[in-house]
Design a protein around this nucleic acid. Structure first.
Lengths: 223, 223
DNA sequence: GAGCGGCTGGCAGTTTGCTGCCAACCCGGC
DNA sequence: GCCGGGTTGGCAGCAAACTGCCAGCCGCTC
């Protein structure tokens, strides 16, 4: 009896497709949303994440999202930018220096989804509803959250990882070249060049090019 | 005999008005123009300098001007900016660490004007035409010129002296504020704010605000 | 092959920043 | 007071930079 209840409450799903099919609606919960992961290489299934984000944006009031990551989530330029954009979108993001499990998601502090490592390309997801287990997971999450540092603080004194291209752009900007000239020298259309510059500004938390120059020099990203 | 020749050739004039009246035309010589002074506080007579500059700009080809100053010429923001503008206008400017005489002007390497220190507010100018004396002055000038360092080099690793206002503007720029907001916070009209920013860019040898941010941080003008 | 998602790059409209012009003002000497 | 030179600040035109839009392309999976 008690066992069948547990079987019912804790479901094991294999692969993202099955997860979405069987538990997708969970992500639309009106309540809070917490998530811990070691990096940004998750939710590979195309389009689904965007769909969730769009749905959640519609909800009023927008539930707060708590995101906890290992520093690996800032390892490359693209990941870091995504993280920054998540934070700008209103999520509370923290970085935790200690290793995190592959992925843990908590919906409304009532349901937990624990993801295992990929096995032969397929990841295993355990949807946990048992109040006792969830409570444990939640308190673990909360404890880790408390010791973690805010994304903004963490990034304040740590230069972003930049691609070679970005560093080249920084050098051209530092040379005082106009966008037109810099783009030409890189053999790159103006529109793309400006996209790159805008992305770099995001990574540097800069609201203006002046500020970006400041940070770039501060982080020693030039000479 | 020889004495009267020398009297004729070396004229002593008192005060700038007399200098301009009796020797003003010398400054319009088509030939080269060299000048050594310890700072920029010279040629106080209003308008005259501008007149010379305008006249010389008309001459083709424009004679090269050699300007030699002590580091005091960069002591304050205004002097430094004027110096930079002189250099941008095509004059060759060098800074000489050793003390320079009050002021020495050489026209076309043929006539020298030596200015003494102000006595009771009036400065004494000696216009020298004797070839021997001029030759001596010229070779002195040339020797000093050779040991002096170019303005650009001198300024490269030396932060400009900034007023408190300029530093406040730098902080606002570093805060990522738009011109509109920054000007409002300083209680300053937009036009004036932008004038100040442009002046600061000149002092920092920056062609863009990004570059200015770079330099400002490099010189530690922010934190 | 078709379908899909993401990136690209041109266009155009907006914002932001830059600068010449000029009347108004301030401040010194006379 | 007057004058002359310098600074100021509004305006307007221009240059530079930012951004939304969207068609087209690339790489991927099915």
């Amino acid at each position: 009896m008690a066992m069948s209840v547990d079987l019912d409450r804790n479901v094991v799903l294999r692969g993202e497709a099955e997860l979405i099919e069987r538990a997708g609606r969970l992500f639309l919960a009106r309540g809070d949303f917490a998530c811990a992961a070691k990096d940004m290489n998750t939710w590979a299934l195309p389009g689904f994440r965007e769909w969730i984000v769009a749905e959640r944006r519609r909800t009023r009031p927008m539930p707060t999202a708590h995101k906890l990551y290992s520093p690996e989530a800032l390892a490359d330029e693209e990941s870091e930018r995504r993280l920054v954009e998540i934070a700008q979108a209103g999520a509370r993001v923290r970085i935790c220096p200690t290793p995190l499990p592959h992925e843990t998601i908590i919906v409304d502090w009532k349901i937990a989804i624990l993801a295992g490592p990929p096995e032969r390309g397929v990841r295993e997801y355990t949807v946990v509803r048992s109040p006792g287990v969830v409570k444990g997971v939640v308190s673990l999450f909360r404890a880790t959250w408390e010791t973690a540092t805010d994304l903004a603080d963490f990034r304040r004194d740590r230069p972003p990882a930049l691609t070679e291209e970005s560093r080249r752009i920084l050098r051209l900007l530092g040379g005082g070249l106009k966008d037109e000239a810099a783009a030409r020298r890189l053999g790159m259309p103006l529109r793309t060049y400006r996209r790159r510059v805008a992305e770099i500004l995001t990574l540097l938390d800069a609201d203006s090019r002046f500020q970006a120059g400041l940070r770039a020099q501060e982080f020693g990203l030039i000479g």
